[in-house]
Design a protein around this nucleic acid. Structure first.
Lengths: 240, 240
DNA sequence: GAGTGGTCTAGACCACAAT
DNA sequence: TTGTGGTCTAGACCACTCC
């Protein structure tokens, strides 16, 4: 019962404000003597808080109370900042930087993508991979798939899509996306995501599958977006 | 490095399908002899998988690969099933049961609620607390606040709100909600949420703050919804 | 160098599950 | 009763941070 009770005490202290975001918690050695327990027990108590996302540990330095100052991502997929911003721009109002990692003009789609886009066997897709950074820390990773029959040969298949992003290019090509579906799940990150987004232990990710449709209901883009849940709030405005 | 490598091996085996959802992983004793490590090391390797949400442990029985068969919750807040369903009904198409835990006709609002609803100091709110269950397992907890000036004296302040739920009653009272905002964050559950929703270790929650507005932009309801992320997918259809 | 967290060992006792 | 996971002890060595 002791590891759990250490966690309970510290949790209560954090909630009550005894320890504020950024503050250092007692060291393992301190907990050992305060509670008269073995080191592994003190450690286990602290690790519970880490698993709950309440704390972050810094090797050689200490255990600190975590803060949450989310980036608000609105319905359009843009981060909400000072002014209206669009996705795919270099700098959003929320201090986000977008880095285009890779663009492939023609690739074989994963089966899931092929069926979502309603493509024939053997049809190719254009793939865009992007990483969003907040003050140099990666916070969002997105992979978009578009039918190569639409995207190849347009700026969508280039490293730089130009002003307005892929949606502007799609519109110019007569495939204006007007309807979107976002499916959101929360889960713990994979090892790859932990490395890619440098995710703190105890932090889940939000996994968003976004599909864009034209007026006649044809899907023109499917995107898989993984967001560090410690950095984001998703905002959906419905109706009006 | 051994605990991590045990986790790595098992993770790879799960991903490759060697162990399928529901399968039992090797016991701690088996891992000890297979890898020639101490028990705590084998345990640590297994606990990593648990923290990643890949496995569930059953005391006295074993460690099992986890499944994910999400309930789809659509934009209206209803679970998507066989037919069109509405929130607040007893049985939704997805086999969800709604239990109304408590209804308070007049209560003092938390400060956050008071400002969101734009209430004067001292104004009261009607509070509704509901729990959704999937085959007896609680999966969603919701607390709704409405201005008592609107809700008190109507069926909204009763245990049973009647057909169509609170929104139908609000509409009848001339406060039809037509616009909604949902703010979604992912995080690890609190201890209370773990108990209330019986959440598996390594499972985050989705925390949704839902605000309903009338035609003239007046907020008429704010709801705080906590969903077991191991059970739900949120679906947002935008535009059209 | 002193203090911090990260990992591992070898053993103990307890609680729960299946039989 | 046997095998499983849950918890704890007491000690070791390592890696990182800060002074």
């Amino acid at each position: 019962m002791t590891a759990a009770s250490i966690a309970k005490d510290l949790r209560a202290a954090i909630r009550s404000g005894t320890y504020k975001p950024g503050d250092r918690l007692p060291s393992e050695a301190a907990l050992m003597s305060n509670y008269g327990v073995a080191r592994m027990t003190a450690r286990h108590g602290l690790s519970m808080l880490k698993d709950e996302g309440l704390t972050v540990t810094r090797h050689g330095s200490g255990v600190f109370v975590r803060a949450f100052e989310p980036i608000v991502r609105d319905t359009t997929g843009a981060a909400v900042g000072d002014s209206t911003v669009t996705a795919e721009t270099d700098e959003t109002g929320a201090g986000l930087t977008v880095r285009t990692l890779a663009v492939t003009a023609e690739a074989d789609p994963p089966e899931k993508v092929r069926t979502t886009l309603g493509l024939a066997d053997g049809a190719k897709v254009t793939v865009r991979e992007r990483l969003h950074l907040r003050e140099r820390k990666p916070v969002l990773f997105a992979t978009s798939y578009l039918p190569a029959s639409i995207a190849a040969g347009t700026p969508i298949a280039d490293q730089e899509v130009g002003p307005g992003g892929t949606h502007a290019r799609l519109t110019e090509a007569g495939h204006a996306p007007v309807r979107f579906r976002e499916d959101v799940v929360g889960r713990m990150p994979t090892i790859e995501e932990i490395e890619e987004l440098r995710i703190e232990p105890g932090t889940p990710v939000l996994s968003v599958t976004r599909t864009a449709f034209t007026q006649d209901g044809t899907p023109v883009e499917v995107s898989y977006v993984v967001l560090d849940a410690g950095e984001f709030m998703l905002r959906y405005d419905i109706g009006g």
